[in-house]
Design a protein around this nucleic acid. Structure first.
Lengths: 95, 95
DNA sequence: TAAATACATCGAAATATATAAATATTTAAA
DNA sequence: TTTAAATATTTATATATTTCGATGTATTTA
């Protein structure tokens, strides 16, 4: 369980989700079940490494991804609790 | 029931949600249960009319709001089906 | 320890978005 | 049929974001 999100967090998460590359990154990581390596994800895109780093940073800063370092690699999982809290916020607009 | 959203639609909806004013506009409309008048919503903000119009347009263009004209007023409801479809997309990242 | 790999950060250019003033359009009321 | 009210559109400017190349920092391997 996670506390409900405030409006600033919802804004940040929404911004992070408002880009096609970042949506694809999330999808790749979510489909990879376990931790996905950063360099493997980057290989799927035709973007400079610094650009990928920037996109991933936004997803991590929005708490949509949880990052873990393994040696010189970075690995990720989708943050389920934050996704759920975000979904709760959207749903609260619908009741 | 609505067809599931494609990634372009998810991107557009996320962008529309990625602004504090637009989040507040949505909240006001959702809390107002029935149709909310555009000018009443605008009165809640310290923004120029053209700016409000621009924000509301983005919410309508993203299909988050359904607009209806009543005389010279515009009224809105939250589009539940689109919210639900959006939530479904986010949830699909979590499974 | 030197070289290579993985990732982050910085600086600059291009593009997109937010905001507002001015103006236009539509509809209602006088 | 003027006039006023509600909203949209256009234009301009300020700010934010995207992207990349160059460079920096760890960490691993030769």
């Amino acid at each position: 369980m996670i506390a409900s999100l405030n409006i600033k967090q919802v804004e940040k998460i929404s911004k992070a989700l408002g880009d096609p590359y970042r949506l694809k990154i999330l999808k790749i990581i979510s489909e990879n079940q376990n931790f996905s390596k950063c360099c493997d994800i980057s290989a799927e895109f035709n973007l400079a490494q610094s650009t990928m780093s920037h996109h991933i940073k936004q997803l991590v800063d929005a708490d949509l991804l949880i990052a873990g370092k393994e040696g010189r690699n970075l690995k990720f999982v989708v943050n389920k609790e934050v996704c759920t809290a975000y979904v709760d916020y959207i749903n609260s607009l619908v009741v």
